[in-house]
Amino acid sequence: MIKVTAIETGKARMKTAQRAGREGRGPLGRKIDIFRDPEWVEPLPILAFLIEHPEGRFLVDTGDTWRNSVPGYLPGWNPFYRQVSIRVAPEEEIGPRLRDMGIDPARDIAAVVLTHFHHDHTGGLDHFPHTRIIGPRENHAVSTGLRGMMMGCLPQRWPVWLDPELVVPDGAPIGPFPGSYPLTRDGRIAMVPTPGHVRGHCAVVVRDDDVTYFLAGDATYSQDNLRADRTDGVTNDPATALATLRAIKAFAANQPTIILPAHDPDGPARLAGKVVFS
C-alpha cells in the first residue's frame, strides 16, 4: 500500500503570462510578456508531496521558505523576482508541516527528491541535513552559479552541506517517457524526464495497485493547462515543453492517473477524491 499526501508550504502569485505563455511566442517574447503583463493570478499553493512506501518515506520537493520576506534574501539585481510574490509563514515551511504530522524531517525521510532546483522547490532543504537528496543532473548543471541565479534558482542560499545525489533518468522506459530512474527497489517510485519548463526537469511516477500518481513538479502549472496544451511563460524551449505535456497525457491515457502539479490549487482535492485524468 502506498500513500501520497499533498503538503502546502505557503502561497505564490505569478503573472498570467507566466502561468500560460502566448501561443507562437518564443523564449524571449514570453519573458517580455511576463514583464509587460499587469495581471496577476490568484495565490497558488506551493506544494510538496510525501510518499509513504514500504521502503520508507520519500518527499518530492521542499517548497519555499519564509526567508523570502527578509530584505536581501532574493537578489534585487534580478528583476524576475519582482514578477512573482512568495508568501510563506515560518510555520508553513515543510519542516513544521512534517512535524505537525508526527514526522521528524531530519530523521524520518528516506530521501528528498527534487523535480528541479528552482527556489520554490528547494527553499525547505535546510530541514533535511541528514537526508539523502536526489535531483536531476542535467537540471543541476544549469542551476548553479550566475546562470542559475538568472534562471530562478538561489544556489547562494542552498545549505552549505548540500551535496545532492545527481541522477540521470537513463533506465528502462516508462510509457512514452524514454527513460527513468527508479527510487525504490520495487520500481514503483521512479523519476522520468519531463523537460521544457527548464532543462533537465523530472517528474515522479508513483504506481500503486489501483492508481498511478504523477507528481508533475512544474512540467505544467495545472491540469487545465495540461489538457489544453498550454505551456508556461518561463520555458526557453516551448516545443519541448509541449512535447512533455503530450507525453504526460499519453501516459495518463493508458492507466488511471492522478495528475499532481506543484502549483495546482485543485490538485489536493483530486488527490483526496482519487480523481483520475480523463
Rank of each mutant, 00 (worst) to 15 (best):
K11W: 05
G63Y: 00
W158G: 02
H140K: 14
A89V: 08
R199G: 15
L59Q: 04
Y181K: 06
E39V: 13
R25Q: 15
V205G: 02
P173I: 04
A89D: 09
P193G: 09
I134Y: 06
P195I: 08
G10E: 05
F58E: 01
G135T: 05
L59P: 03
L260C: 07
A141P: 02
G196S: 09
I109R: 03
V70P: 09
T9K: 00
A17K: 00
P178G: 11
E165G: 12
F277C: 09
A89L: 14
G152L: 01
Y81G: 03
D163G: 12
Y81N: 05
T231S: 12
P79N: 04
L98Y: 02
I248P: 06
A228T: 06
P182E: 03
L162F: 03
D264A: 09
I2N: 07
D232V: 02
P169V: 13
G123Y: 01
R87T: 14
L28W: 08
D224K: 14
P105K: 13
G196F: 08
L242K: 02
G24F: 11
P45T: 04
V198Y: 07
T62P: 09
V168W: 00
G217Q: 02
D237W: 10
A252K: 03
G124W: 01
S85H: 11
I248D: 02
I174Y: 05
P173S: 08
A89R: 15
A141G: 07
E92R: 01
R19F: 10
I7Q: 03
A252M: 02
K249F: 07
G63V: 01
I189E: 04
T240A: 13
Y181M: 10
L47P: 13
V206N: 00
P129F: 11
T5P: 07
L44E: 09
T144W: 09
T122R: 10
L245Q: 08
L44W: 02
R99L: 15
T220F: 10
A12Q: 10
W158A: 10
